[in-house]
């Protein structure tokens, strides 16, 4: 392969592996939004907590990778339920903007409360994945890239299956469609919403651990930027739609790496946001969303 082709393929690989991180975070984001219509700004910070609990499990409890991942997912699921019960539940019938402010409050609390507990110092993840490199026709990728992408696809498929074909999933969709009607049909909406938060937060934790392993540094503010990006990805794909989050995440990763690859790395985020605004103006419900008509 000539060098330009190699470079293009390398950038595509770079974009896909970054995109799969965004997709992983976006899955949880989009699910919570789909059920409770709340922009959960604390999602990125739950991811940070997940990264730290994974780090704690590996370095202090000396667990291997999979148990550490499970440990982190379970603790974040609990954290998610706790956050929902304490901060969001009382506001279920309040204005959207009040709920958003609460989410911002929770996000700040996790960031700076976390900083009090673990200090602002950057921690390094121990090497968990083998250092294997793959070279195909001059294009480099590593073990972590594959794990990332596969995890994202598998989790998306699992999530999609759960929501579409299981009883809990049906209940979730019912709550999303009409909370009162769901209640009247005998669905325990409180439990369903808690369950949604638990799953969403566990997904965030998984993303956090993977991100920690992948980039090998974690700090208490690590959730802010990826959280925002994942949110953009979720909106891009159509917020509330699970395959949309996946596609949105991968697209965002690709856009970023292409823009950087063209030599405009510092304009990367601006292009991402510009695409977001254009998509919103042309098709407000996102690429995969259905247009809902305003009720009169």
């Amino acid at each position: 392969m000539d060098s330009i082709t190699t470079q293009v393929f390398q950038q595509l690989i770079n974009g896909l592996s970054l995109g799969s991180i965004y997709a992983l975070i976006a899955l949880g984001y989009t699910m919570v939004y789909g059920i409770v219509k709340l922009i959960n700004f604390a999602h990125g910070d739950v991811m940070m907590v997940g990264a730290y609990s994974g780090w704690f499990a590996i370095t202090v409890l000396h667990l291997s990778f999979l148990p550490a991942l499970l440990f982190s997912m379970i603790s974040c699921a609990l954290l998610g339920v706790l956050i929902e019960r304490i901060a969001y539940k009382p506001l279920r019938n309040a204005s959207r903007i009040a709920a958003l402010i609460t989410a911002i409050g929770v996000s700040l609390f996790l960031e700076y409360g976390g900083m009090l507990v673990v200090t602002a110092q950057v921690r390094t993840y121990p090497p968990v994945f083998p250092d294997t490199k793959f070279i195909v026709g001059g294009v480099y990728f590593k073990y972590g890239d594959i794990v990332m992408l596969i995890t994202a696809v598998v989790l998306m498929a699992l999530l999609h299956f759960t929501v579409q074909y299981t009883k809990v999933g049906k209940a979730m969709r019912a709550v999303s469609f009409d909370k009162e009607a769901a209640l009247l049909m005998g669905i325990n909406t409180n439990n369903i919403i808690s369950f949604t938060f638990a799953i969403g937060s566990a997904l965030a934790a998984a993303a956090g651990v993977l991100m920690g392993v992948y980039f090998n540094t974690i700090d208490p503010l690590m959730g802010i930027i990826p959280g925002l990006k994942a949110f953009v990805a979720a909106v891009l794909g159509g917020i509330g739609i699970i395959p949309g989050a996946m596609v949105g995440g991968l697209m965002l990763g690709l856009v970023e790496s292409i823009v950087s690859g063209l030599g405009a790395s510092t304009w990367r985020d601006a292009v991402a946001f510009l695409i977001l605004i254009l998509v919103l103006i042309i098709k407000p419900s996102g690429l995969f969303g259905k247009n809902v008509r305003e009720k009169v």
Binding site: K37, F231, V232, A270, L276, I281, P284
Partner: peptide
């Protein structure tokens, strides 16, 4: 953007704010 409603408008304005920041950054 003002023909967008609710959360969508919020996201679009958020995106605008970030674009402005990046323009000055460059």
């Amino acid at each position: 953007t003002l023909r967008l409603k609710g959360d969508y408008l919020a996201i679009a304005t958020l995106g605008f704010g970030e674009i402005v920041r990046i323009v000055f950054l460059n």
